[in-house]
Design a protein around this nucleic acid. Structure first.
Lengths: 149, 149
DNA sequence: CTCGATGCAAATCGTTTGCACGTGC
DNA sequence: GCACGTGCAAACGATTTGCATCGAG
């Protein structure tokens, strides 16, 4: 069901995260540790600027952009696009089956995580009919939240 | 079903389009006529830069941005976001029930229009459970087209 | 010690805007 | 003629990149 805050996706431990970096022969630096630790405690996707503001002097903005790109590339972080021209990033939760979507208020930008998705056969049928392989999708909902109505 | 090119959405006549502008007391200028006429003949969404390239000296890039914004505002054009940081625009087809999505090749960006959508109850249920009103969604598919496999 | 990572600043890219001029109606 | 629309250039915000330095392994 749609849930407001503190979604129940189990966020990975920092030790587990740094271990993943180590496995790929990537360095565990202060900035990277700080970024991962911050994302671990976020219920919703964050923009790079928000991460920058939260980390203060802890990390350069360019480093955040570079880190996010790297983390997305290795599948530890997922990138979302809410149509306002700013990328948002969310830590992928433990199991890996953290496929979910968002419902964003058009007025105040309040976000609710949506765990449900449409039946998989819908997408399978599209893949079959088109001949495309490895089909994925992006799906976000927009509306007006109770407060803003 | 998913179809390759020349989707069957009936594109509006230029005369019908300019009539809509007139109704809103907006001026029918050369640039606007050229933009609408170009969009009428496009099977897929176009970026502003593509429109600019297609129109050559016919219209300034800033005018294209301003026109698209205006056309989206009055519901004659729909804006799409394929996650690459560039907005794309498509003329809304005649009836108005032209709600559709796209399947984009991750390799060559080839686009296929998808007319189907998931059952409306799915979205209704999300709206009901969250208390959000006027809920809409963005949904795009990504995969690897037959040619690029 | 070595190579990847960082900070800083400059560059790029999509998009927006200020302003003087041009033109539908 | 007036208000809206346009062209041109400057401004902007998000993201990327070049380069010298720094630090994890």
């Amino acid at each position: 069901m749609a849930h407001d805050h503190a979604h129940e996706h189990p966020k990975q431990e920092l030790s587990s995260l740094t271990e993943q970096l180590r496995r790929k022969a990537l360095k565990i630096t202060g900035p990277r540790r700080r970024i991962l630790d911050l994302l671990r405690n976020q219920p919703h996707p964050m923009t790079n600027k928000e991460v920058f503001a939260a980390l203060g002097e802890g990390c350069d903005l360019a480093t955040i952009y570079r880190s996010m790109h790297m983390l997305v590339g290795m599948g530890m972080v997922k990138r979302y696009d809410f149509g306002d021209g700013v990328a948002r990033f969310e830590l992928v939760s433990e199991g890996g089956d953290d496929h979910h979507h968002h419902l964003i208020c058009r007025e105040c930008s309040k976000i609710i995580e949506i765990d449900e998705c449409f039946p998989g056969e819908f997408q399978d049928q599209i893949a079959a009919a088109s001949g495309y392989r490895d089909v994925t999708h992006t799906l976000e909902f927009f509306g007006v939240c109770p407060t803003c109505q």
